[in-house]
Computed example of a mutant assay.
Amino acid sequence: MTTNVRSTAPLPSDSVRPADPADPAALEALWLPLEDPRVRPLLEGLTREYDQRYGALFGGASDEMDRYPAAEFAAPHGALLILQEAGESVAGGAFRQFDATTAELKRIWTHNGHRRRGLARIVLAELEGQALRSGYRSLYLTTGPRQPEAKNLYLNTGYVPRFDVEADPETIIHLAFTKDLVPG
């Protein structure tokens, strides 16, 4: 059974499987500007995560989090999603324009206390739907070598690896994936 996540998206939200089958209406999808305070848990959570996993490998978490201006995650070429449950930001992600027909997914995150509930899959489905509605035909993303759960998520949700999946991820550094968007 699928159900709709309540969404503030300008267009109707995609149909997705609820994270908590006991209360499918508990999640709310909020499309927000990067500066909104409800986005802060995503930014702070990602910064801590990057610091713990990578240290200074990519120049430090702050460098990565400041790499793109907020305007790149705003309409009409981008979007930022936060999933809230009982008023708490529990997961999120964003996309920005990569090229004229491709959106780049960025900042995919799930709060440590809410992992293994399928929230990242919901975030991906919502972002994919919004990217399609925004006119994109494909998606591009990279993840780091020390995020095997992210690598597995993308492999299991139809993303095509653009690297040798048998190679040691530490030798690749940026694990790139692509996915064609198909109108539903």
Rank of each mutant, 00 (worst) to 15 (best):
Y50H: 10
T3K: 08
T2A: 13
K151E: 15
A150F: 09
N156L: 12
L80I: 06
G59N: 10
R67G: 08
N112C: 05
V123A: 01
A61V: 09
G118A: 08
F177G: 01
R133A: 15
R115H: 00
W109I: 08
T2R: 15
E35V: 02
E64P: 01
A176N: 02
V160E: 05
G45V: 03
G135L: 08
G93L: 09
P21T: 00
A125V: 07
L127I: 08
D99F: 05
Y140T: 01
G59I: 10
P10G: 15
M1Y: 13
A94K: 03
R17N: 12
G144D: 05
F98G: 08
E170R: 14
N156K: 13
D20G: 00
P76H: 12
L46G: 05
H174A: 14
E44S: 06
R146W: 10
G87R: 08
G135E: 06
R121M: 08
L42A: 03
D14E: 15
G144E: 00
D23W: 08
E88I: 15
Y50R: 10
G135A: 11
Y50M: 12
A79M: 05
Y154E: 10
N156A: 14
Y136Q: 02
T2F: 15
P145R: 13
D23Q: 06
E88V: 15
W31N: 04
A56P: 10
V123L: 04
Y140H: 06
H111Q: 05
L80D: 00
A9L: 15
R107Q: 04
E28F: 02
R117M: 00
A70R: 02
F58V: 11
G184R: 14
M1K: 14
M65S: 00
G129C: 09
L175N: 03
Y68S: 08
V182H: 13
F177D: 03
V123G: 07
E85I: 08
E64L: 14
L153P: 04
